[in-house]
Design a protein around this nucleic acid. Structure first.
Lengths: 173, 173
DNA sequence: GTCTATATATCGATAGAC
DNA sequence: GTCTATCGATATATAGAC
């Protein structure tokens, strides 16, 4: 990975996240990165290849974010760690996450199976804690995470901590 | 509103929702609607005007969806009605909502103040019910709604009803 | 209101030199 | 690895006839 390659990725991430994938011209990516337009195609094949390279980094981030949840043995602590996941996202990765969230609304590019390992361990936790419908509880919790992440990425509420507290209370945490 | 005008709006909504605003050519909208391309610009000025016309309809839908929540006098019933809002969306309006949700990730086009009247009445409800932090509870509930709407629009979970039940339980409903 | 024809700019992508 | 130059296709938008 050369410096110019990384510059292209950085510029593309920033522009794709802010103005959309289709809304961003490769010429603009090149100009922002300070490289020639041809270089983009030399390194990434085509525009889609450039997006794929960025999203691949994103998948790694997601895996890392949920690793602590999956590894937690205690069911109660596992749920608590899951609720905290959106808050563990580093601010400097926000643009990457905004792109991921924007892309999922684009044509059938949404891969929901990514969260299946998390589903498994959460359902198990709710089962151990004798919840009436562990599967429904899991989906509900994932929905909350989605809503919370959306709020953080789009309008950063000023009472973040209080919201998390109110949520934890609903799970007796 | 002539028949062809409506045909343009219908085609644009479908295509913008499925392939994105920037990703959809006006020529494709014209072809799908069965009209000439020039007619689009005659009626809507430019491509952005076409999008605005669609989103204006969307704002009306949103207002209608939350009307029953705002009008409910009983605080407990008000919260219940709010939780049910995503389920009241008609399936044939899904494309419109998908477009709205996709657009909100595009450059600062997100207008969060739209929900301010709902915020007001929900905070009031939580206050009446003696919740510890009514404002945090309101934001939390709105996040739930966002996550739930996302789930319904993107992958329609098979246990919708059970999820709503699990959620209602958390508010003693 | 609607269509055909066209202007003009920009798009993604390639070729070839260094 | 990187740049310059350029291609053909397609984009938004306009003009003028009916």
């Amino acid at each position: 990975m050369t410096a110019k390659q990384q510059a292209i990725l950085d510029a593309a991430l920033q522009l794709f996240a802010r103005e959309g994938y289709a809304g961003t011209a490769t010429s603009k990516v090149a100009k922002t990165a300070g490289v020639s337009e041809g270089l983009i195609f030399r390194h990434f094949g085509n525009k889609q290849g450039l997006l794929d390279a960025i999203l691949e980094q994103g998948r790694e981030h997601a895996k890392q974010a949920f690793a602590k949840v999956v590894m937690e043995a205690d069911p109660k602590k596992r749920i608590e760690k899951a609720l905290e996941v959106p808050y563990t996202i580093n601010q400097r990765d926000y643009e990457l996450w905004r792109l991921i969230y924007a892309i999922k609304w684009q044509t059938q590019q949404y891969d929901n199976s990514m969260y299946d390992p998390v589903r498994l361990v959460l359902t198990d936790a709710f089962k151990q804690l004798k919840y009436a419908d562990p599967k429904a509880e899991t989906e509900l919790l994932l929905m909350y995470l989605d809503g919370m992440a959306t709020a953080l990425l789009l309008h950063e509420p000023d009472n973040k901590a209080a919201i998390l507290e109110a949520l934890k209370q609903k799970y007796d945490l």
